[in-house]
Amino acid sequence: MAKTAVKVENVSVMFNLNKEKVDNIKEYLIKMVKRELRFTEFWALKNISFEVKQGERIGILGFNGAGKSTMLKVIAGVLKPTKGSVEVNGVIAPLLELGAGFDMNYSGSENIYLYGATMGYSRKYIQERYDEIVAFSELGDFIDVPVKNYSSGMRARLGFSIATAVEPQVLILDEVLSVGDAKFKIKSEAKIKSMFDKGVTVLFVSHNTAQVRRLCTKAILLDHGEIIAAGTADEVCDIYDKKVKSK
């Protein structure tokens, strides 16, 4: 039996919603004295549990505000759940907003090492993959230019190349298959497919059921912070499509 890659247990996430953002001491004190520091509780995720086995590819579906992004943040370890726990075995590569860890004044090649270190890899490890990353990103001579002068496509290409070159065990894909131009899109899909063959575990967030059916083995459907359907990709996509039509 395959090992568990991601285990989500009874996870709930609560946000305090206050109408105005209080971010200075004066306002905070005034509101505290006036007893206006009231918050409305908002549960973005309510008691979610699921398990992803190694090599499984799971699609996460849901309408806007269903809690998909919150779910991914919890799994990526960025957001701590209010209740429950998440267990991840292996290195996660969150392919969300590619290039978020770049320093704009740093050149492309310098950013490769910085981004690699952000993911927990040593300079030596990245050095071994450096040529591959540069080749895949197709940046050529632009690699020595500060990233602030890059186009958004170039930035995303470099981010994608680094994040996939380090051979992560768990891949979080958030609509990233639309990186760059048509040519690069084909290339990046092929790269991700080749990672599938190596048995990478995938968490894929999308609104596109056709894509989920094509790429995923399983799926879950979130609505208002709860799992309302879970099963094979086709089953869940059918339910989702039906819900879309009935709206």
């Binding site: 004044n105 270190a117 927990g120």
Partner: peptide, 20 residues
Amino acid sequence: WKYRFLLVEIVRKNVKLQYR
């Protein structure tokens, strides 16, 4: 210990960028 590389990289970056 796992993230010591990040520490080194950020220090390197700050020193390098300061007078670039």
